[in-house]
Structures are given as C-alpha cells and as structure tokens.
Amino acid sequence: MENSQLEYVTELRTAITRLIKKLRKESVSGQQLSLTERSTLALLQQHKQLQPTELAAMEKITNQSMSQILNHLLQLGYINRTMSETDKRRAIITLSADGEQILKQVRSERDHWLAQAIAATCTNQEQDLLKKIIAPLEKILEFE
C-alpha cells in the first residue's frame, strides 16, 4: 500500500473512532454500562436467548469475564437468567423488559444527537454522501 493510501486509511480510522467515542458520551443512559455490556444486551435482543458460553464466544472474551458482565446486568435488572428445560446445568440468558428499554433509550439518545449534529454541520450534499457511505462501511464490517 502506498503512503497516500495509508494516510487515507489512518484518517478514516481516526474519524470513525472519534465519532464512536463522541456517540458514547452523548448517551447519558449508556454511560452506566461498559461497551461489552451494551454489546451483550444487543446480542440478546438480536438472538432472543443465548447461553453464557455463546455470549462469551460472540464477544471474544473468557467465560469468567462474561459471568461478571452477566452478574452486573442481572443486578441492574436488564437480563433474565433461567435454567434450561433439557439440561438444568445450563443457564439461558434473555433480555428483560428493562434491558429492552435501556437499549431503546441509549439508541434514541445517540440517534437524536447524531441527527442534530448532521443537520447543524452538513450540507444537503454532504448528507447525501453520508447516506451513500453506509453500504461500503457495512461491507467492511463483514470482512474477516
């Protein structure tokens, strides 16, 4: 890769990283949760129910670390833990109504801030450009 391409990649990475950090700060509700805790809640919303080992694998963390995260989320009332019908040794984790609500609230706060920021700082042409960049960014996310 040429240096000019590397500069572009570095600038893109830096801008995306800064935007993510800014979005995290713009959700008062989300600040009580770590990034992994928020991601765990989102996985539970997506998959409906998962075992702790499945969550740990998806988050690429140890089972012990996931256990600590799940204990915290359980204390906050954001998840439910039940025993499997077929194997009483296995726990099944689901998102509680409060967990669903906190995810909705965090996303709403962030979306609201981002919409305001885009409207205040970007021209109509730049807003169209932002809409067009979503598909290529999603392709990058799928790259392994």
Rank of each mutant, 00 (worst) to 15 (best):
Q32P: 00
T14L: 09
W113D: 03
K88C: 03
Q64I: 13
H47A: 03
H72D: 07
L70S: 05
A15Y: 04
N80Q: 11
N80A: 00
I69W: 00
E59F: 00
R110C: 04
I102Y: 02
R90M: 11
Q105A: 05
I92F: 08
Q75K: 15
E59I: 08
E85D: 11
A115S: 14
E37M: 12
Q45M: 13
Q105I: 12
M83V: 10
L114F: 15
T14K: 10
R110G: 03
L41P: 00
G77T: 02
Q116E: 11
T53V: 09
H72C: 00
E59H: 10
L23T: 09
L33T: 02
K22P: 00
R90C: 01
L50R: 01
A115R: 08
N71F: 14
L74Y: 15
I102V: 15
G77D: 06
D98I: 01
R89G: 03
K21A: 13
G30V: 06
E85I: 11
L76V: 00
Q101F: 12
D111F: 09
Q46N: 12
A117S: 08
Q75V: 04
R18W: 08
T62R: 03
G30R: 09
L19F: 11
K104Q: 14
Q75A: 15
K88T: 14
I92V: 15
T14E: 13
I16L: 14
H47P: 00
Q49S: 15
Q45I: 01
K48V: 10
T40M: 09
S67F: 15
L44T: 03
Q46W: 06
T82S: 14
I16W: 03
Q64E: 12
S84C: 07
S84Q: 10
T86Y: 14
L43A: 06
E26A: 05
T53H: 12
E59V: 03
I102N: 02
K60H: 12
L41Q: 06
I69F: 09
L44I: 05
E26P: 01
M66A: 15
I61Y: 12
K88G: 06
D111V: 04
R81W: 11
L35A: 06
S84W: 08
T94V: 00
A97Q: 09
L74H: 13
L19Q: 09
K104M: 07
S65Q: 13
R38G: 07
M58G: 13
H112Y: 10
Q75H: 15
S67W: 09
Q49A: 14
R89H: 12
H72K: 12
K88R: 15
I20G: 07
R18T: 11
A117I: 00
S96L: 03
A56D: 02
A91R: 11
I93M: 04
A42F: 03
L70H: 08
Q31V: 03
I79S: 05
L33S: 05
L43R: 05
M83D: 06
A56S: 08
A115G: 08
L114N: 01
Q31L: 12
T62N: 09
Q49W: 08
A56H: 03
N80G: 02
S34Y: 04
Q49H: 13
N71Q: 15
K60G: 10
S108W: 07
L35G: 01
E100F: 05
A15F: 06
T36D: 09
A56G: 00
R24Y: 14
E109K: 03
Q45H: 15
Q51S: 11
H72W: 00
M66R: 07
I92H: 06
S29H: 10
R89M: 05
L103F: 05
N71A: 15
T62Y: 08
N63Y: 07
